[in-house]
Design a binder for these strands. Structure first.
Lengths: 222, 222, 222, 222
DNA sequence: GATGAATGAGGTTTCATTCAT
DNA sequence: AATGAATGAAACCTCATTCAT
């Protein structure tokens, strides 16, 4: 079904970035809304055309295929979604020995929350298609593994060496952290179920859960 | 798209439970495999018919609609999936003051792991459709909220009163726990990515993360 | 474009041969007429459906593809037309030593003329598509080469040995004969241009041209 | 489908002959290659434009219609292809009583072979479209009948009067000769199947077949 | 003259559903 | 109960042609 290699597409994408026609822009916006709302497979191109105020043929003139339209929406998101954060925070982390793991977590959460607030609909599309579309999944899993997984593991190992984190396998911890953050984001941005109106409180709640779990901490009596 | 109310369907289902014709059974089995693999929307009824060794018309004779076939698969799973466990464990919990929260968690994980091992494919279907199909989602969310959410909250409150759990809002804690468990199950059963070959170790890892998070526990120096 | 191997299809076709539904028959008849008249590429399936008094979907239920519909028309024709001629006439030839080459030619022409009168429209389709459709051509050429070409060459060699035919290369002679006969048939059945109203006279004219060319035969003066 | 009268077009064409823009020339060359290779109906204008290094609109600015582009390619070829040969050879023939019919044939074949070697692709286009496109066929048949048919008949009659050719109806003989020559050219230039590497030998083979057929000529023993 | 974005009619194909047998 | 041929709406996509720049 998917005939496009996402990683290839990401590399090529740089060239064709700027020249967004008016109509092309309209099509992309309409497609983003509709795919996010109803899913790629449940959105006919005719409806996209109508929503974009464009003839159906125009979609195919610009994107060739419905598949390729989807890819064109996803790719720039993916390009932005990971490396920036990782690179930057990673350096901060290495250079600043004052930074504790929970600060790292807090930063990460704040940064990604902001990013996803600005890219809510594409995030919805990706999550939905990730579950539904095996080809999308097969394209993305290695990308995530490399860009999120292995970097997070590195960070965890660094903090383990500093004695801040427990000595469970770093991969296991990374997975648990990923579920906690991912679950929170999916709930919030895909299903629109906010944990709390206060964003800062929400972040703190995740940080606290990830750091210390649910157990009541015994206060050391003097 | 979905014309069936799942909760209604669940109630009605009791009547028609036993009389599963040979052909009807075949159809359901074929549909489960195919929906799990490719998703409901990507599976033509013709393919189900072929896989079941049945004429296409037979599907509609038994289920009326493709939608209704999906519902017929999901409903018994949902009926089995929650109440039983909750009821039982809840009573055990109340009657047994020795049971700690982490034992509750451990039991819950073991029990559901067993259940999902036996119902892997239907779990896959539900997860996929939950993300992709808004109507399914709208049907299921209240059901989950009531049957999982509120019961888990009750349990948490009970243990909070016993002084075992921290005093964060119970709803928040329930959500975090749900993400940790749900994420683990989805990874394992939907994407086939096992955290560990040893199931018992996997359970312990979740329990430990949920209970104590990732922070290195300071040993009390004398 | 064409995804079917004609020779393979021919074999498969034997199995499914008999069960020609009413509608399937109607579709094939309509398709033959329309393809012959306007060519395959200029005939929409919608028009075939209308002409056959059938829903458009029915065409695809029976033939899967427009391509496959074309193949389904051509294949049985070729199955009947070529081996029969080759086998039968070839045997007649070998068994009867009285038979002269021009009798062989006469028989061949009579036989094929009769056959093409009954299958005029399919012959039209094949000729048109043979010129227009490279894939059809690539499928058919080896089949013709083997079944017509090489057998005709054998016949020619036999008669050369008997001293009836000149000693040009048999392949060359076969080609010239093929052009003479093929040209005549195409003119008659594809373009509807009859050489003569009297069929027997037409045959004789071909035989005479092939045997003796156009030169005035000098009468031996005593 | 075809809205242009070829004969009319040929007349008009004289006026617009010389002023071939650079772009117009490019378009025509690209179209010739593509039409010859894939056929008119299977060649999108977009592809012609790309191959010509020209915008799609430019094609329509110059030719108005895809149909008209086809006609613009065919017409000058036809103008060159027949009259020249006929006029010239005919005069040679009438003035030179030494010229035998087989010399006429030989000259004709040599001349046209050279011409077609230089116009192979357009010949391919015309043959393909002649078979496929009824309107093209209806346009061309009278043209051929008049320019080739009737002149050839005249030549044949002349030689019949000189006692060189047999007394079959001249029309019939013309048709047989046309098939022999036409078949040879189509095989060679449309299907790329050469009868012989040696062109002169190929010509002789046609001449011999046309003149004397395939029969072994009995040598008169004294 | 030249462009190329835009069009929209029309093409092939898919598929849930119906219904006579 | 079971069949499977038939349906036709709707999906994706192609392409000759137009037109503002």
């Amino acid at each position: 079904m998917l005939k496009y290699n996402l990683l290839e597409a990401m590399k090529e994408q740089t060239k064709t970035d700027v020249k967004l026609t008016d109509k092309k822009q309209k099509i992309m916006e309409a497609a983003i809304s509709l795919f996010a709302e109803k899913g790629y497979g449940n959105t006919p191109t005719s409806e996209i055309a109508k929503a974009a105020g464009v003839a159906e043929g125009t979609i195919f003139r610009h994107f060739g295929t419905k598949d390729h339209l989807l890819v064109s929406l996803i790719v720039p998101f993916l390009k932005d979604s990971i490396p920036l954060m990782a690179e930057e925070l990673f350096e901060k982390l290495l250079s600043n020995h004052e930074l504790r793991f929970e600060d790292f977590l807090r930063n990460l959460l704040r940064d990604r929350l902001l990013f996803l607030k600005q890219n809510k609909e594409i995030f919805q599309i990706i999550v939905k298609e990730f579950f539904y579309n095996e080809e999308i999944r097969h394209e993305l899993i290695p990308y995530f593994a490399e860009n999120i997984g292995s970097r997070l593991v590195q960070v965890i190992r660094t903090f383990q060496e500093r004695g801040e984190l427990s000595d469970q396998p770093a991969e296991t911890m990374a997975r648990h952290i990923f579920f906690s953050i991912g679950g929170t984001f999916i709930f919030k941005f895909v299903f629109g179920l906010n944990g709390s109106q206060d964003e800062e409180a929400e972040i703190e709640s995740v940080v606290r859960f990830v750091m210390d779990g649910v157990r009541k901490i015994k206060e050391d009596s003097p």
